[in-house]
Design a binder for these strands. Structure first.
Lengths: 220, 220
DNA sequence: TTCAAGATTGACCACCCGGTCATTGACCGG
DNA sequence: CCGGTCAATGACCGGGTGGTCAATCTTGAA
């Protein structure tokens, strides 16, 4: 992983120091958010001097963006892996797989997740906004493609609006992940049975009769 | 509206000065977030001196919490009004009414909305976290009650999980409102037709066949 | 008209911020 | 052992912070 916002000096650093810096940045930014994070605390945690840090990343913003770059890269890799692994599975299983691997990621990288969720509304700078918007669009396109594949397989009716479906799925998944990562209010996401029920609900909605069209497929 | 975090001095102030302070606070906090908001800029906008402000609210936090208190009060009033007004309408209409009045609120009070969304993940202090959690739980219970009423009316199958449904609705509504309030990415929420499609989608899900039970109601 | 009581003010405080740069000292070819 | 190189350092800078308080102004009863 090459961080585009780092200087050459950083890239020539030994790996252990690089990771020490990134780890400290993760910790500091996730705990306090971008604005409140302190470069002074950060260098103390990283065990280097302030002067050095500014040799590696030209500014606070550059360091933060590097971190975001790293996090989004990992998420992208994860999503691709899940997509490929579950390619042959029926839609409900795929959705469950995506969701539970998302939960696993959030549990495994709580600090990166916190940064992401912070970013989600932080809106502190236009740069952040834009990056976030791009990320959301990508996530939605990803889900949309999953739905379209299911539609081609005949698992969904031919008239289902996959774009709208992806919007809804994205909103709900995002909320579930936020619940999984925050300490409070995530009763719904813990148990596997709950996950099944959620996926079923997303597939069938509130069980309201379908509106005329979009209802001829049948599955065993 | 009595703000519990204000001092007696504030409560004895003439209404115009009170509202000037609240307006300036709204502006400042919404534009910069809690931590980055500056009390210096704030008093300048409000047209009073810093000393006075600290006589009215003992600290930055007290002022902020007062603002949140005010905003959540307004939201509560709005939701109650919509609930009562739409009591006799069928479920799809009720959902659409809730959603579109939410959108109207967000458009009318963009600064309060921004503070809310900021709070949604800000998580800066435990106090904020707790207040936010309470608000979300209330919103979900509100939606749950709407769904249960619809179930009693026979508009939903008797086995529909209203708690889960409320969770999903809440997540999607929240996302739609965020889209409506942010400048970017809200293509889906602008047109009324899009709202209809969204509600239909939430009612019917992805049109997947229902899982065995929960499927005997029929409507003309 | 006087003057005490309370409201209002803004200069001031200690502190912390992101960022800089002269100094330091470890390393190395000769 | 030297002198040169260059990464690492942390004292320092201008500026902004939330919060305080002695001084000033306003008010209204005597």
């Amino acid at each position: 992983m090459e961080l585009s916002t780092a200087t050459i000096a950083y890239r020539q650093l030994e790996a252990s120091k690089q990771s020490a810096i990134l780890q400290a940045a993760e910790e500091e930014f996730s705990r306090k958010g971008f604005r409140a994070a302190s470069m002074n605390s950060l260098v103390q945690q990283a065990g280097i001097s302030k002067g050095s840090l500014f040799q590696y990343f030209g500014s606070k913003e550059a360091l933060f963006l590097g971190l975001v770059e790293l996090a989004t890269g990992r998420v992208r890799d994860l999503l691709r892996a899940v997509r490929d692994e579950s390619r042959q599975q029926p839609l409900p299983d795929r959705l469950r797989a995506i969701l539970s691997s998302g939960i696993a990621f959030v549990r495994q990288h709580p600090r990166l997740a916190r940064i992401y969720f912070q970013l989600l509304q932080g809106a502190e700078s236009p740069v952040e906004r834009e990056g976030l918007g791009r990320l959301e669009r990508r996530s939605r396109r990803f889900l949309q493609r999953i739905l379209e594949e299911a539609r081609e397989q005949g698992e969904l009716g031919p008239h289902v609006d996959c774009e709208l479906g992806a919007f809804v799925l994205n909103a709900v998944f995002e909320r579930v992940l936020r619940g999984a990562f925050m300490d409070h209010l995530d009763e719904l996401t813990v148990k596997n049975g709950a996950l099944d029920a959620l996926v079923a609900h997303l597939l069938c909605g509130l069980g309201h009769p379908a509106p005329a069209h979009a209802r001829e497929e049948a599955s065993p």
